[in-house]
């Protein structure tokens, strides 16, 4: 019961034999009371099962119907959101391939949403770069960048893909040039700093110029002192560069992992 509404008080009230609701006089029969008021059986039943007015029932049905229709109409958004959340979960478990599948599914559900499309293109491109198919990643990243031109993530990913293309085409001067641009655009990222070392190491492997080797070593040292220069990915990249410096052989990441599944240690090193 709400404020300012007490139970009706019986002042002089109806007589005990007259129903307060229907006013029927039951003669000598004293009626039972509800909230102090005499009520006949028929009225008591009505009061205890007071029906909801038709407009309340109709209104409730109408709004529930509206919510159900809205749910059906918007279901593609729900499933796209679920796909995005599942994709993010896959990303957290380092399963990029499955994440890309989820993001692609989300983008297919809401083709009229450019942001979801850009998001899906970005991760598709990252997967291609990881698979050493950087050339295929570039058009995807350009499309993503056209959707969100101010997003620095896409700009940096595009540079990363260009680094990959230069490496895959064995254009090591270009590899160095783009790696330096990438490291400049993200000066606090140790992996970007290692990219410059990797480019110097490639140039050393090709022409045997000791100055290039020194530059690569110095760059590894710089990258190693940066915040976040830790973890297996960083260590593996350093090993790959050192392997290149020691053997003057340039091999892809997948080949490196295939040859040295338990990691590589330099000769005479720990």
């Amino acid at each position: 019961m709400d404020d300012a509404n007490g139970v009706p008080q019986q002042q002089e009230g109806p007589p005990a034999n007259v129903c307060f609701r229907c006013a029927t006089d039951y003669g000598s029969v004293a009626l039972p009371r509800i909230a102090g008021l005499p009520v006949c059986d028929a009225c008591a039943r009505i009061l205890k099962n007071r029906p909801f007015p038709p407009w309340i029932r109709g209104g409730l049905v109408a709004v529930i119907l509206l919510a159900a229709l809205a749910f059906l109409y918007n279901q593609r958004f729900f499933f796209a959101h679920l796909d995005m959340l599942r994709g993010l979960r896959e990303l957290r478990s380092d399963n990029l391939e499955r994440a890309v599948e989820r993001f692609n599914a989300a983008a297919a559900r809401v083709p009229d949403d450019p942001e979801v499309r850009a998001f899906s293109l970005y991760f598709q491109a990252i997967l291609l770069v990881n698979q050493e198919r950087s050339g295929e990643a570039i058009p995807l990243l350009k499309e993503a960048q056209a959707i969100k031109p101010d997003d620095p993530t896409f700009k940096s990913a595009l540079l990363q893909a260009e680094v990959g293309v230069a490496y895959e085409q064995k254009d090591y001067d270009r590899f160095l040039e783009v790696s330096q641009a990438l490291a400049q655009s993200d000066p606090d990222e140790p992996m970007a700093a290692l990219g410059v070392a990797s480019a110097h190491a490639c140039r050393y492997a090709v022409n045997g110029d000791e100055a290039m080797k020194a530059l690569a070593e110095r760059q590894i040292e710089i990258a190693s002192k940066m915040q976040g220069a830790e973890g297996p990915q960083f260590a593996e990249y350093v090993d790959r560069i050192r392997y290149r410096l020691e053997t003057r052989e340039i091999i892809s990441r997948s080949e490196f992992v295939r040859r040295f599944p338990n990691g590589w240690k330099p000769k005479g090193g720990g």
């Binding site: 709400d2 009706p8 509800i34 008021l37 205890k48 099962n49 007071r50 909801f52 309340i56």
Partner: peptide, 17 residues
């Protein structure tokens, strides 16, 4: 108010107004 009334009905309490 409908929720108050609904539980009155469910618990068999008379609704006077």
């Amino acid at each position: 108010e409908a929720a108050h009334m609904l539980f009155c009905r469910l618990r068999g309490l008379a609704v006077l107004d």
